[in-house]
Design a protein around this nucleic acid. Sequence first.
DNA 1: TTTCGTGCAAAGCCTTTGCATCCAT
DNA 2: ATGGATGCAAAGGCTTTGCACGAAA
Lengths: 164, 164
Amino acid sequence: MSDLTAVDVAVSPETKFREYLMTQGMRLTTERETIVREVFASHEHFDADQLVSRLNQRTDGKRVSRSTVYRALAQLKDSGLLRAVARPNDREVYEHDYGYPQHDHLICKECGDLIEFVDDSLNEMLSRVAAQNGFRISAHRLEVYGKCANCCRPKRRQRKTDMI
Amino acid sequence: MSDLTAVDVAVSPETKFREYLMTQGMRLTTERETIVREVFASHEHFDADQLVSRLNQRTDGKRVSRSTVYRALAQLKDSGLLRAVARPNDREVYEHDYGYPQHDHLICKECGDLIEFVDDSLNEMLSRVAAQNGFRISAHRLEVYGKCANCCRPKRRQRKTDMI
DNA sequence: TTTCGTGCAAAGCCTTTGCATCCAT
DNA sequence: ATGGATGCAAAGGCTTTGCACGAAA
């Protein structure tokens, strides 16, 4: 992800997941633990398929079936550990919703890059609008589409990370 | 839709659609014309399936196949006449993007109602963020999830349009 | 005639689910 | 022993596409 600062959290994702599962009469199985760890091993955005691939590449034999991954993703979302942020290619894209500050995204239509940003005035605006409509907000999703700085500039060839 | 005021437009949706199609070397066929008219006959949000149903209920024999509807929706989107606004039940939901002011939505998780709103500070914020990131915005989608006024209040039974 | 469009049915794609087997308590 | 969990394969649900026929220029 970008340069947003991680937030201090009291307990690890595994623990938080276990606590959630317990409230649902479920257990933190080996598979589910493997998945949470893999999910929180990196701050990148990912979709179900990418997660499955990452799990399949493991050499420690801790593979998990696709079904279990999908089931776990739903549980991670319900537990507040993950959040669905976009659906670029008809695939749900997830990101950490635990230990990470709330933010929104600029989405480049050319290279698909997701740029995170935070702006307080958005929340002020949302509160105002909610009040005006007697609406009780539980969440929001703001996706800003366009062209990122890199894709905007005149290109000889496309350069990914420039300025070396 | 809600109480947003329609914007004056120079040409009809049909005309605008025809113009777009011509630039693509396509024609405004009877089917496509039937679809644009049906789409712009009402300001409600709709999904592909609802549009197909509306077209199937016609008694004037002007029915259109599902494939053609899907193809036309893509063209209407490309032409700037329609915009995809949400995807509540895995169905893409569309609304008019022509002759209607730009706005965003409060989406009630209980009853599924879409409430439109406009707030200038959002655009100010977006411009600022875009500038900071060297990002060129082409569009945005803001979905605010929660509970609408109607669903919030203590209910004996659920009432749709109250206060009679 | 030639190109574009339509309709039908089949295929695609991501995701969900039925079901038999397994595992931990 | 027992209820939840996993994996596989099949089913689902929306959307897209191949293809032959039809219509307009």
